[in-house]
Design a protein around this nucleic acid. Structure first.
Lengths: 81, 81
DNA sequence: TGATATTTGTACGTATGTATT
DNA sequence: TAATACATACGTACAAATATC
């Protein structure tokens, strides 16, 4: 899976950004490749132990950054292909 | 105030988009002018009788469209000045 | 064909933190 | 010292579209 580091709820960086940085790193390292689907919201919820709203916040951020594209009822995919 | 039409929770357009269209119309009509602050989240919550999260969704959409700019702890203002 | 499960979208309410007034 | 306002986070529920059995 992803999760290269744990979330620190007390740090200055909010959890949704920490998770975004984690996924971003996975994309940049090639662990997640263009066209590949990233884990579902439910999977991310379990993996990072946060609420779904937090995960959706993360996904939205990555989408706004152009790193992923989301297909309703399907999932989110790494952009670039 | 704004509110040129009521929200229809049963329509195909989700409330946050209906409210956005409403505010957008107020901006385009000149009722809300560039530099002017739009109603606070609380005011919008009361005016449209929706949850705060819905209002925030609306504000985010308008911000992404470039129609308004948000100043943390201050409010959102009509862009263009 | 039909039923069920999965997944994202939307919406509700509530709580806490931080900065400004 | 409040009151105000945005940012973040929690949990819950239902809808819609898709995939699977």
């Amino acid at each position: 899976m992803i999760i290269t580091r744990a979330i620190d709820p007390t740090g200055p960086e909010p959890p949704y950004r920490q998770i975004a940085a984690d996924i971003r790193a996975a994309i940049e390292s090639g662990e997640l490749r263009p066209g590949q689907r990233i884990p579902t919201e439910s999977e991310l919820v379990e993996a990072y132990e946060v609420a779904r709203s937090t995960v959706r916040r993360t996904v939205r951020l990555l989408r706004e950054e152009g790193l992923i594209t989301t297909v309703p009822q399907r999932g989110s995919y790494v952009a670039g292909r």
